[in-house]
Nucleic acid binder design. Structure first.
Lengths: 131, 131, 131, 131
DNA sequence: TTTT
DNA sequence: TTTT
């Protein structure tokens, strides 16, 4: 019913951009999200796979690289599949709805994450609120 | 850059549905969101104003009433305005992106919250992932 | 840095309650979180593993059962391990910080969700998981 | 029941640090959170008041200044009060549970965000706010 | 492997 | 398998 994930972390390497047979862009990358433990504990991270679709996939591939800091908003998806050895496996990945770039782009000031979801962003005028 | 609010609470009364001059539906209601304090403290709630636009506004008006339990996902919006006495005021409201009904509807089993944001929900086939 | 997951879904069966060798309660259960697709698509769900620690683990075990509706707030944790066949696997689970009961308890009106911070911050050893 | 806010934005000025009569640190600052609209629309922001308690309040006061980029996780709180002219007003603020510094600190590499749970759960009196 |  |  509700499935919301919000992460801030750094890319472990360049995004991997591909296209489905029907021509839709998909990018994948892994986010290192540091855990915060007591100081004496080893610094650890969760390495979380991110999937981005369509135009945002291409923007991520164009502007993101290893070490870049991003905020990802999406949903947690659990997929079952058989690997190359025929072993049944489960894959967890966050399907990104929005990716925000939190440090400066390498070659440009570009910003990803066109957000098309909010009512107030679809172009009607909020000054015209009837309350 | 990121502005995400997730609330679970109960409507304090029926939603108020109106239309902008350009014909767009807007519903408003207030959510009572209980705080969790130590047992000895008064039980209190935050009363948070919710704004819903377009088709979801009408679904909320049709199916929600006083006391109904909902989950709201949206963004926090701060608006400045002058009240009827000419006093400058700030209004805080959560602009809902999705409203989920968490208990049974009074007159129907209807469900609001058509979600149009996620890539995987826009109709391409995830079995066709090129990874 | 930031790792936040919020889910609403139904338990697929009773929680499994165990204790670490040092006597700390841990409960596990799976949440079925329905995806929302276009009407013509199969209704599907993500089946997401939840881990709960300490007092909340016992509250969940006492009051939750198959089909119960809950809201879970926590963080996404990726663990690597070797399964019984010696195959390296990754497990994804949501470590719950709070579990809210959204429908009536079977035998009582009890409410869980005492917020004590993350299990992993109170000093017990997560390598000591009895699963 | 659930009241979760996650924001990323920039401080509009230095945090204002005070102490309650019982000696508890409280910091307040305003976060400018850019909205994302269609390109032709004015760039706008929501200016959201943040309250931080205890040790994090002092860390924020020590390390944050105007323009700094932070992620705030907290809950939305609506307070009613009478202003200096005796006019009843409502104030909305986000009570921060965690503040993460997303760009480099001015004078140090310090990191805030020790997670101690909500201020309001540790027993001090929120009516005793020195603002 | 699965919930309503 | 991994980021700063």
């Amino acid at each position: 019913m509700l499935n919301k994930v919000i992460l801030i972390g750094r890319l472990t390497k360049e995004p991997d951009l591909r296209y489905t047979t029907s021509g839709i862009a998909v990018a994948k990358f892994t986010l290192a999200v540091d855990r915060r433990f007591s100081k004496d504990r080893e610094k650890e991270a969760d390495f979380i796979d991110i999937v981005v679709w369509q135009k945002q996939a291409e923007t991520c591939a164009n502007y993101l690289g290893k070490g870049r800091l991003v905020a990802v908003e999406g949903r947690l998806q659990i997929r079952s599949y058989d690997d190359s050895q025929g072993i049944r496996r489960k894959a967890a990945e966050v399907v990104a709805e929005n990716v925000r770039f939190l440090d400066r782009a390498k070659e440009s000031g570009a910003v990803a994450g066109e957000n098309q979801g909010y009512g107030s962003e679809i172009g009607f005028n909020e000054d015209d609120i009837p309350f």
